[in-house]
Design a protein around this nucleic acid. Structure first.
Length: 152
DNA sequence: GACTACGCTATCC
DNA sequence: GGATAGCGTAGTC
């Protein structure tokens, strides 16, 4: 029987190194890390290229297959986040309405997003246009949103 | 039961 | 009108 192995690699981006975990062509995790960059194979290199294109404004959507680990509820929130288009934002309140829950719970799920950037939870902000919070800090959130606004 | 990447309201300058 | 504090809320650990 053939088995799929989970592969880890560290890729380098403008805003720091990211730990990439994938299984075949499904991305399981994409999180910031302090570890030194290393690439395992062509797939990781491919991701790195796409991410760097994104950071230089040349690319505005990712078409990777994601396989994030989470509860049903978290997946529902992430699915809604994926629907937010490049350069647009949505409030926690809006997302909460769509899946009939509370904004607090939406924030909770976003905080556990294992695929930063690919699941664009940086596009989810507070209702009163305040940015809210972010796993990598609100500075990064600000940078990402500005990048998308200008590149559009 | 405690903890949130929220939002609303009341209350204070 | 702006700043702050308190509380309701829903999901997770």
């Amino acid at each position: 029987m053939k088995q799929n192995y989970i592969i880890t690699s560290i890729i380098k981006t403008k805003i720091g190194n990211f730990l990439l975990e994938f299984e075949k062509d499904n991305i399981l995790k994409f999180l910031p890390t302090k570890r030194k960059a290393f690439l395992i194979n062509g797939f990781a290199k491919n991701i790195e290229n796409h991410v760097n294109n994104y950071f230089s404004g040349k690319e505005n959507s990712f078409s990777f297959r994601l396989k994030p680990n989470g509860t049903n509820f978290q997946r529902k929130v992430w699915l809604e986040a994926l629907k937010i288009k490049y350069g647009e934002t949505c409030s926690y309140f809006d997302i909460a309405n769509k899946i009939s829950t509370s904004p607090r719970a939406v924030g909770n799920a976003c905080a556990k997003n294992p695929c930063l950037l690919f699941i664009p939870c940086h596009r989810i902000i507070n209702k009163n246009n305040v940015l809210g919070n972010y796993q990598m800090g609100i500075n990064i959130k600000k940078i990402l949103l500005n990048l998308e606004k200008e590149a559009r």
